[in-house]
């Protein structure tokens, strides 16, 4: 048993080191190696962090919340509930970073910090859904009931996101578009840097998820042991 724990720990440590190295490499590549974009200049480099954060928040984290919520409802294994909770926490963090880096990018490029563009608005709504999910977990007492209720909200929230995107997209096509899309053609070397950043952030997501799940597992084990000890104390 101890061997297994030790081996797991060393795998996690190695994963952390590899992630750190690739993150550092991605930062150097994005800040110094990627070519300077002609129209936007240096501010375009934010894109190399903004897009991978959005990928983690809107792609990986929410899919994990949905997938592990379903897994919990089917198997009733609290481990899956803890994975969904950890993914939601990481999701909130990366959605927040996506919104902040997006606003910082939008100001010099579009002239405003915020516009009701479909992707932006959907990200903001997703932020509220993630926070609602965590709030629900926060106010309910730990255990199977909380896991069940959170899983239900996780599933409903996931179903809602594409409909939100569709409705906002329709809404904006009805209104005149004042601002440009802000898109730009990605040159070959830019694509390499972006791919490196995406890989780095994906590794980071997995690392943070495993770490957080471990903490949640340990704290639930601790609570269990404490309750057990208390019961034994009463019996004596």
């Amino acid at each position: 048993m101890d061997d297994l724990v030790r081996r797991r720990r060393s795998v996690l440590a190695a994963w952390g080191m590899v992630t750190g190295a690739i993150m550092a490499l991605a930062a150097v590549a994005a800040l110094f190696l990627a070519p300077r974009e002609g129209e936007m200049g240096e501010v375009q480099r934010l894109f190399y962090f903004h897009m991978p954060c959005a990928w983690v928040a809107l792609g990986l984290a929410i899919t994990c919340v949905f997938g592990f919520s379903i897994a919990y409802l089917v198997t009733r294994n609290l481990r899956y509930d803890r994975i969904a909770a950890a993914a939601a926490e990481i999701g909130v963090m990366f959605t927040t970073i996506t919104l902040i880096t997006g606003s910082l990018w939008a100001k010099p490029v579009w002239g405003v910090y915020w516009t009701w563009e479909p992707r932006l608005t959907t990200t903001l709504i997703l932020w509220f859904i993630y926070v609602g999910y965590l709030l629900l977990r926060w106010v309910a007492a730990p255990g199977h009931k909380r896991a069940r209720l959170a899983a239900v909200y996780g599933v409903v929230g996931w179903v809602d996101v594409p409909i939100v995107f569709l409705s906002i997209w329709w809404w904006r096509t009805v209104h005149p578009r004042i601002l440009g899309s802000g898109g730009f053609a990605i040159a070959g070397s830019m694509a390499w840097v972006l791919a490196l950043c995406l890989a780095a952030f994906t590794l980071l997501f997995v690392y943070l998820l495993v770490l957080r799940v471990r903490i949640l597992n340990l704290s639930s084990l601790l609570a269990e042991r404490e309750a057990q000890a208390e019961d034994e104390g009463v019996e004596k």
Binding site: I125, F128, L149, Y153, D160, S167
Partner: peptide, 23 residues
Amino acid sequence: AVTVGVQARGALLSVLVLPLLVP
């Protein structure tokens, strides 16, 4: 049904429902 019996229920219900109602 999800929020039966939790604290600050009224406000929590709105926080859970309104983002989902956006479309």
